[in-house]
Amino acid sequence: MVFASVPKAVGLVYALAGILALAYLWHTGRFSRRKGLPILAVTALLGFLIFSPVAPYQFQLLVLRDVAGLGAPVLLVAVGLAVMLGLALLFGRIFCGHFCPVGALQEIAAHLSPKKVGRTQKKVSMAVRGGVFLAFFAAGLLFSFNLLGALGVHDLFHLALGVPAAIFLGILALSAFVYRPFCRFICPYGALLAVASSESLYRFVRTDLCIECGRCERACPVDEAKKTDAKAECYMCGRCVEVCPAEGALHYARR
């Protein structure tokens, strides 16, 4: 289903423009979780139509030095990924939350069930993803092994049914019960974005209007809503803002 005639740069431009737009809309209070649903749908559709901006897989191809698979100049892809990393340092993980097709599919699947397991296992998920990150580079650099390809990321979006696609489809199905399992336990590019996001200039912060009710903390699917949390795992889903009963108590602003 992927249209090879459409430049992959279209997805990159879409993601970069979208990140800036959502940062502005969150900051001005004009965005919400409900308004994000159409964006998730468009992002997922772009994944199937042009396989972009699937940044984790593009990052995989860079590690493998697979120029043909990238479908775009290596320098352009590298610069694009670096820019998105810089934007995460400024605005948090808006890309992961809304503009990565892999993340978008998981977020859509997460709507199927409100109850999730492993919500408070943040340290465990980060430790596992750190191990996967090391395995990802070892597999790519030492053995030229496409780890994300073996997990079916490429095959499912290309509708190439088989064992790899079934594996990734299983991960998506798991997203209904475990929030974003691929993002939290596997994604190598997400590991880099998490580091950047932990130091992000803009993030969700509590104001003096906070009544300490704890609803945002209970609603957060990754246990990142406490005052002292670094927001490394915050996917900008907006659940915390959605349940906050005190207007103006939780705001996306400069920390």
Score class of each variant (00 low, 15 high):
Phe168Pro: 06
Ala110Met: 06
Ser200Arg: 01
Gly69Trp: 08
Leu159Pro: 03
Ala176Pro: 06
Val77Leu: 09
Ala138Cys: 03
Ser197Lys: 00
Gln58Phe: 13
Pro53Arg: 04
Lys35Cys: 00
Arg129Ser: 14
Lys227Thr: 09
Ala194Cys: 03
Cys234Val: 09
Phe91Ile: 01
Phe185Met: 12
Cys96Pro: 02
Lys122Gly: 07
Lys115Ile: 12
Leu148Ala: 07
Ala138Gln: 00
Val163Met: 11
Arg93Ala: 08
Ala104Val: 04
Asp208Gln: 13
Lys8Phe: 02
Ala21Asp: 01
Leu151Trp: 08
Lys226Val: 04
Tyr235Asn: 10
Arg218Thr: 05
Leu250Val: 11
Ala127Ile: 06
Ser125Asn: 04
Leu81Lys: 09
Ala9Cys: 00
Arg215Glu: 11
Phe185Val: 08
Asp155Glu: 15
Ala191Ser: 12
Met126Glu: 14
Phe59Ser: 06
His251Leu: 14
Arg129Trp: 00
Ile94Met: 05
Val124Leu: 15
Gln58Ile: 06
Gly47Phe: 08
Ser144Asn: 14
Gly248Ser: 09
His154Ile: 01
Phe99Met: 10
Leu46Arg: 05
Ala4Thr: 13
Leu22Cys: 11
Val241Lys: 03
Lys227Glu: 15
Leu40Val: 02
Arg184Lys: 12
Phe51Asn: 02
Gly248Asp: 09
Thr207Trp: 09
Ala44Gly: 05
Ala9Ile: 13
Tyr179Gln: 11
Phe157Asn: 04
Val243Pro: 06
Met236Glu: 11
Ala44Tyr: 04
Ala139Ile: 01
Leu192Gly: 07
Phe182Glu: 05
Thr43Ala: 09
Asp155Lys: 01
Leu134Asp: 01
Phe185Gly: 03
Cys187Pro: 03
Tyr189Asn: 03
Ala253Leu: 02
Ser5Val: 14
Ala230His: 11
Val205Glu: 14
His251Thr: 15
Leu81Gly: 10
Leu85Ser: 10
Gly170Trp: 03
Tyr24Thr: 11
Arg255Ser: 14
